[in-house]
Amino acid sequence: MKKKKKKRKVKTNRLHVYTPFGKSVIKDSLAYKGSFYLFVICKVLSVFITYYLWRAIFSSSDNSELGGFNQVEILTYVFMSFVCSNMVYISMTTKIGENVVDGSIAINLIKPISYKSKLFAESIGEMIYKFIVPSVFVWIGLEVYKYVILDEFSLSGIRIALFLLSSMLSFIIYFLFEFCFGMIAFYSTYVWGMEIIKNSVLSFLTGQIIPLTFFPDFAQKLFNYLPFSSMNYVPVMIYLGKISSSELIFSIERQILWILILELISIALWRRVVKRISILGG
């Protein structure tokens, strides 16, 4: 009993070590308020533009449904995709690249904190900040619009909870994926090039640009074996109620499985990289 208590205390202490990293990210983001306001406005604008593109696509079609989506659903899809991806996609490749170049990763190795946990803490900070601005407002705006203008309301508490749960899992999957991807920075100095390749591939495979149901059947089958659909597509489809309750558990299980797999990969990669740092000195 006593032992258990002690263990718990150590754990809370350790958490305490990492919270400042998360907080400082939020603080930094708030520090430049001029760019901050514009950033939010422009970002939301770009979602609207995507939506209008979809509206034009629908009005050019004789069918009221495309790829299994009607117009209200695609509206929800586009905006909830933004709500989810905005807070979940926190890119770290550039940051890791900078840390490699300025040598702070090597310095971090001699500190009593884990580099990965530090990054995770920073990501959580960024996620919270991005959830507040503007994800949650876009979300509320969307539902208000649907209720007032379109007279549609199909939300339930359980679905919101499931969406948030699934989004959190997406966040972890994305974090681990980014961490693994960021390890490239140890092998190439040209992180920017890798970053745009990654982003353009990701934006497709996670269903951000276009719902995955628009892809041909063989591609959709392939996506089941990749972690990307678990990053954005799954939570949004859960929110839309397009995943039946029997599939639902399976989808969440698959997200957890991907977390485990990516965690193992990231541990293995990190070990290799640490070895490399200690040989080459960063």
Partner: peptide, 18 residues
């Protein structure tokens, strides 16, 4: 640094392809 060039080139090609 040919490698960097090809990474960047493919990056841009990927964006276009998508």
């Amino acid at each position: 640094s040919k490698l960097d060039f090809f990474i960047g080139l493919f990056g841009c090609l990927f964006v276009q392809a998508s």
